[in-house]
Design a protein around this nucleic acid. Structure first.
Lengths: 223, 223
DNA sequence: GTCTATACAAGGATAGAC
DNA sequence: GTCTATCCTTGTATAGAC
């Protein structure tokens, strides 16, 4: 059942794999076609242009990620848990992409460069990406707000600014791990989660360690 | 004097401008040539290939940035000052590139995507980028070490991990500002510097505000 | 739905005149 | 040092047969 995927989906999968590894511009339709055992013109039966493939890849990617984040946030109620769950969700998503693309999780995947390139393609893609970050920011602001009401999070912080900071911290980690061999998400995230929470928590909170029991991953892996 | 720049330098400048705005692959040698008023084959008198131009751009960029960081770090002795100076240096560098490329500083520039793309080009470029991050990490570890000796910085922290975190925080900020319109370096950095120092400082340190008197920048600017 | 054949444009790169 | 002319390759995309 799951083996019998449509040609259209095969094209999308192969495209995404190639886009994320060698980049959009180095990915020719010929390459995509060859990798799934068809000829180039067949692609045009399923998609009207390369741009349409790119658009569909971005949409699928972000729809999926947003959906997973929703599911994950709904299973937690405490602000610290929710923020860690959000981070884990984003990391897991990249880890999954890494496996999709390289068949193992030790090679890092960098979505930012892909998005950056996509934005040149068409204004609608730019809007979709902007909308993803906006959704993320809104979720974070809501977590921060309810955390403040519960007395778990500092009242003094600027939620607009802090929410952006929270996004940029996890993305910074992921990006750097794609550029610099000494940067490993898996080694960094424990410290990340602790310093993030230290900077958010209300002063009188008792210190707790490791709210989330996140999967332990062997250290050879980048994620 | 400064107006009479060589054709070789003109090519490099125009190339960098185009690489950083529309990307390496969208930048044809024809485009570069036209933008400085020469014909495409003339480029080949100065460079043997497009790849050589890319390599020179990356080298010049990173040599310049590393040099500025050295100069800036030498004018400070306190760990907090040094870390903020390093951050300011990186931000100023991007701001300068933004002006070079767009003639104003409100458009963000993202070096990471450029580097990411460059790394596909040639292993030597990858090594140069890796070397930049390594240099940065070594500098940060040295700052952290001397801060610990002075008693200004927590002894408990893992310098390898924290130095990576410090790099990824500033890069995360810069990257996000290129992808998401609500993210503005200029609005974020004050909070960044404070939470960074809060997470590093030894417990008994007296609280000081704003060690560095960084230039105030009007808020319409992205940097 | 997939193929062969082909149109058409654009890119990197070289030869050789001036 | 810069040009015109040209080569060769590769890319996106379409027409039309099977």
């Amino acid at each position: 059942m799951s083996k019998n995927i449509s040609t259209k989906d095969k094209i999308l999968k192969a495209s995404l794999q190639s886009f994320l590894t060698i980049g959009i511009d180095q990915t020719s339709l010929n390459l995509i076609a060859e990798s799934i055992g068809i000829k180039k013109p067949s692609i045009y039966y399923h998609f009207k242009s390369k741009e349409e493939i790119i658009t569909r890849c971005v949409d699928n990617l972000l729809d999926d990620l947003e959906h997973r984040i929703d599911l994950s946030l709904n299973t937690h109620t405490q602000p610290r848990e929710q923020i860690e769950a959000l981070y884990e969700c984003i990391i897991d998503f990249h880890s999954g992409l890494s496996i999709l693309v390289y068949d193992n999780s030790s090679q890092p995947v960098n979505l930012n460069s892909f998005f950056q390139r996509c934005m040149l393609e068409h204004p609608s893609i730019q809007k979709r990406i902007e909308s993803y970050y906006h959704t993320l920011q809104v979720k974070l602001i809501s977590i921060l707000s309810s955390g403040q009401k519960q007395g778990a999070i500092k009242n003094s912080l600027n939620k607009e600014i802090v929410s952006i900071d929270l996004i940029s911290r996890i993305e910074g980690m992921i990006n750097l791990s794609a550029l610099y061999s000494n940067a490993h998400i898996n080694l960094q995230r424990q410290g990340l989660y602790e310093t993030v929470w230290d900077s958010l928590k209300a002063e009188q909170q008792p210190k707790k360690k490791r709210i989330l029991d996140y999967k332990s991953i062997d250290l050879g892996r980048k994620w």
